[in-house]
Design a protein around this nucleic acid. Structure first.
Lengths: 216, 216
DNA sequence: AGAAGTCCGTTGCACGTGCAACCGCATACT
DNA sequence: AGTATGCGGTTGCACGTGCAACGGACTTCT
């Protein structure tokens, strides 16, 4: 079961299923379990391992200057914990990662990924790792692109154009509801609904629930 | 001269100066020149090479939905062009990179970095590359952290706390002026000045120009 | 010294948007 | 069928902030 999740994870893509177990032992990957509401990474920790979530869900959150807790991301099976921190040298974690349910996590020491060993597909693994880190960065870049727009309308247009670009069509469905969309764009949900209807009124877009159509 | 810039660049840190030339030829690095206002990367391009700016300055910009051009970053000698795109597989560039002056650029095919060759310090190079990509991602993360705060005061506090954390002190100097700070936080400069003086009035911070002191 | 430029702070005003509350419409469950 | 729940749209209001314009402190150049 663990292997199924791993094989679907981008880090091990392109690596034959039969070679996975060999690679994992070569990399000294270790499996650990965490009970519900345990802390996997604490704010300020150094992270020498890549962690892959095998089962359960976790969340990363940051403590505000006022002590308020801000949820940053939700991590699902197949997702990474601290991949950026492990890839970077000596960066302290800006977030705390908590288990929302009982977790099974696979740890892989970053050092073992960097140091070439004799097991097969190591080049592929490195390439995948680099790809995963770069992809994370590009996703952050995409969100920044939306966040820096001055008005909600601009944010929404940037957001939708990115989806249209990926879909290769003016018409597409987004994989989230209004709440998540508002959270991503960092705007109030009702303000987002208001602006969306104004944009429809102005003939910029058409939409119904999660389906959108750009008329630009 | 090119080697001086390269040796200072994070990608080649920890690699003895004497071995650099050998590595570059092993990696098939090629040097190219660009005249002022030339385009190095176009929006939508695929980027198979890491590019390191040897001399001159460049900027990356993005064309708005309204056709307006938004400046994203400024690139100085020793800086990278398209490192995230080269590290990611098949991602099209979201930005255009333009030469602001005459440029000298060093191109290194990403494939040659990934595929282990016999030249020394290749592991170090890979580690450095991963580190550079992760660092870029973490910088984007830090900025996101500021951008998602609801008010200017929250943004400023997050921004300053990050600096205080890095400096290890409540008192520090930031390497940018009000314009750049306002740009980073994506707020109006005058609104930033206003909020800063209110925060001083409220006893939260003290400051003078680029010097700040947190009293929290 | 005078002029011009740069950087930063101040302020009046208007507009965008966060906030709260409410409603309509689905789907799911008993 | 009736109720509960979740999601999305609507609206009045107040407040934060973008915007524009101006002034002061400081630097640079002629």
């Amino acid at each position: 079961m663990a292997e199924n999740v791993l094989h679907a994870t981008p880090l091990f893509q392109g690596i034959p299923k039969g070679d996975l177990a060999l690679m994992l032992s070569c990399l000294s990957a270790t499996r650990r379990e965490f009970p519900r509401s345990a802390t996997i990474v604490e704010e300020g920790d150094l992270v020498p391992n890549i962690a892959i979530l095998l089962s359960g869900t976790a969340r990363s959150l940051k403590t505000d200057s006022a002590g308020k807790q801000v949820i940053v991301t939700l991590i699902k099976p197949g997702g990474y914990i601290g991949i950026l921190l492990a890839a970077s040298h000596g960066r302290a974690s800006p977030v705390t990662v908590q288990a929302l349910e009982n977790l099974a996590v696979l740890f892989i020491p970053m050092q073992n990924i960097l140091t070439r060993c004799d097991c097969p597909h190591h080049t592929k693994l490195l390439s995948n790792l680099l790809d995963a880190v770069a992809e994370k960065a590009l996703l952050l870049h995409d969100r920044n692109d939306c966040l820096i727009r001055p008005t909600i309308r601009d944010k929404v247009l940037t957001f939708l154009l990115e989806f249209a670009h990926k879909a290769g069509s003016h018409s597409f469905t987004i994989p989230m509801g209004r709440d998540a969309m508002a959270g991503y764009l960092d705007v109030d949900r009702s303000a987002l609904s208001r602006e969306l209807s104004w944009m429809k009124r102005d003939g910029l877009i058409d939409y119904k629930r999660n389906w959108f159509n750009l008329r630009i």
